[in-house]
Structure formats: structure tokens, C-alpha cells
């Protein structure tokens, strides 16, 4: 999404282009991705891994960007922290976005540290009015600083705050409504949290306003018996694919991305997962609309028009 006026959150209520079906770009796959065509439409990169001065990662991203749309996905914005926003971090993110012109920039609805220290983990917020005001203020500042709206992702969580005043989906939707940010809806995270906290994942989907959703994440997780852990080291399970089908039905043509960050398999495995996302997406839209909207069929790399929710 190109920079534009973000002063009015309602003016930013436009969904960015549909990119098709992508995968996370990881170091293990650099050679394969650069060696020739792939079966994916776009790549998401971890912003912080490229906030460096030189070396191979930046060179690879430069070459990947020449061929594919790219999304910058951060893990350290710490939008919910009570520490001041890290201006140096925002400078680096801004510079990275200007250099690589991503389709959009995203991070997580969480906090990652406090007192100047960073846990490098996506820690849960209490869903209170106080936290909502705090997050919305910071999202507005970040968007102003970057000159573009950002997307925020729902995280997997393992504990919640008893004094939360609203469910996560309401908090997320309200952050998007008030700040004009987009939502990166992680389908696996919804599933993981639904099991860990005992809610119906379809309720989550049904409370997210369709126009706010810019992107889906799909990933594998681990079943630890007492809880599900968001490990990104397995294939997407059938129940999550089922939830994804429901998400496509509700939200329409939304760019999807497969995340696989540990025990990384050969690239072909990721391509297969992405193909499955594409197939479910295309089937669901065909069945729902009787036909695919122009530009969506085949999930071409070119941005297609939006479909109605």
C-alpha cells in the first residue's frame, strides 16, 4: 500500500491490493527462490532481519523485490508496550519501507518488552479501555511516522487477564476502527488461542469487520497436551484449513501467507502449502459467488480488485 493521507482513520478504510498466496522468505530458501520461478505470488519478510547495513540478506531481498511483491512484517514494534515508542526503530522501519516499497507493513497486537528490555516474544495485552486507548494512540503515531497505515496481527496466547473488559476480537476490531489500521488475521493463532482459552474460533471470525482484513497468516502449531503452542514448525492442520475456508467465505479475496519458521522443510513443501491455500481460496470464492471476480482467478501476481465480503 503506497503512502497516503492517514490523518483520517476512516479514509484509510480501503483494503490494499490482493497479492495472491505467498510464503515467508527464510534464509534456508534464499538460493532456491533466486534460482528461478516459484509457485508463490509474493513474500513476507521479517522487518528486523533486514534492518542491517549490508551482507547477503539485503542483497537477496533486493533481488527478490525485483520479481515479487513483498510485505514487511515486524516483530518488535511493541505497539502495546508502556515504554515510549522506539524512534530509532521507527526510523529504520521507515527507511526499509522506502527502500523496498512493500505492499504494506505489519506487526503484532501485543507488547514485546518493558523498561527498555525486549523479550523478543509476542506478549498478551489485557483487553481494557485503557489498553485500547493506549494502543490506538500509538498506532496513529506509527502510521503518521511511516506515512502509511499499518496492519496488526492477532497473536497466539497462553494466558489472559481476568480483568479484560472485552474479548480479543472486539479489541482488535476496535483498534482497527479507531486507528484506521488493517488487520492481519492469523487463522492459526485464532485456532491456537481458541483452544487455549476455550472459545469458538468462528465467533472470532464473525466479529471482525471484513473490510479491515488485509491478509491471512496460516501456520502449523504443536499440541502439548495441556495447550497448543504456536511453533510454526509443522504443516497447517486440517482444522485450521477448515477455519481458513470459513475466513475466505467471510472476508473474500484476502492475500494469504504460509509461515514456517522452525524445522524448515524444502521450499517445495511451502509451495505445496501455498497451493493448498490458493485452491481453498479459489474453490470457496467460486462456490460462494458462482464465479471468481476478475483478477482473482489463478491468484495472479498482479493486484486484483477486491471482492465484497
Amino acid at each position: 500500500m503506497s503512502p497516503r493521507d492517514i490523518a483520517d482513520p476512516q479514509a484509510a478504510r480501503e483494503r490494499p491490493p490482493f497479492l495472491g498466496h505467498g510464503v515467508g522468505l527464510r534464509r534456508d530458501h534464499f538460493d532456491r527462490v533466486l534460482s528461478g520461478p516459484t509457485g508463490v505470488d509474493w513474500f513476507e519478510v521479517i522487518s528486523e532481519n533486514f534492518m542491517v547495513e549490508g551482507g547477503r540478506p539485503l542483497d537477496v531481498l533486493t533481488r527478490v523485490r525485483e520479481r515479487y511483491p513483498v510485505v514487511l512484517h515486524g516483530v518488535s514494534l511493541s505497539i502495546g508496550s508502556t515504554d515510549p515508542l522506539d524512534e530509532a526503530y521507527l526510523d529504520r522501519l521507515h527507511a526499509l519501507a522506502r527502500r523496498f516499497e512493500p505492499a504494506w507493513v505489519s506487526d503484532h497486537l501485543c507488547w514485546t518488552g518493558v523498561g527498555g528490555r525486549n523479550a523478543h516474544d509476542l506478549l498478551p495485552l489485557p483487553y481494557t479501555e485503557q489498553a485500547l486507548d493506549h494502543v490506538v494512540r500509538r498506532v496513529l503515531r506509527v502510521q503518521e511516522r511511516l506515512g502509511r497505515p499499518i496492519a496488526l496481527e492477532n497473536v497466539s496466547s497462553y494466558v489472559a487477564y481476568r480483568r479484560s473488559e472485552m474479548p480479543e476480537w472486539e479489541f482488535l476490531a476496535e483498534v482497527a476502527r479507531r486507528s484506521g489500521c488493517g488487520i492481519l488475521l492469523d487463522i492459526n493463532n485464532i485456532f491456537v488461542s481458541s483452544r487455549n482459552h476455550g472459545f469458538d474460533p468462528r465467533t472470532y471470525l464473525n466479529h471482525i469487520p471484513p473490510a479491515t482484513v488485509w491478509q491471512f497468516h496460516l501456520a502449523g502449531h504443536s499440541n502439548k497436551g495441556t495447550h497448543l503452542l504456536d511453533t510454526h514448525d509443522h504443516a497447517v492442520i486440517d482444522e485450521v484449513w477448515g477455519l481458513y475456508r470459513g475466513a475466505v467465505t467471510r472476508f473474500g479475496a484476502v492475500s494469504s501467507l504460509i509461515e514456517w519458521d522452525d524445522r524448515i522443510p524444502p521450499f517445495e513443501r511451502l509451495e505445496n502449502e501455498s497451493q493448498r491455500a490458493r485452491a481453498i481460496h479459489d474453490e470457496t470464492l467460486e462456490r460462494g459467488a458462482g464465479r471468481l471476480p476478475a483478477g482473482v482467478a489463478g491468484s495472479a501476481r498482479a493486484a486484483g480488485p477486491e471482492t465484497g465480503p
Binding site: S81, W111, V114, L123, L125, P126, Q130, A131, Y161, R163
Partner: peptide, 10 residues
């Protein structure tokens, strides 16, 4: 009974 966000994070 309200949560102070700073205290909760610390």
C-alpha cells in the same frame, strides 16, 4: 480491580 497496564507489564 482495574488493571494498570504499566504495572501489569512490569
Amino acid at each position: 480491580g482495574m488493571i494498570d497496564l504499566r504495572q501489569a507489564q512490569e
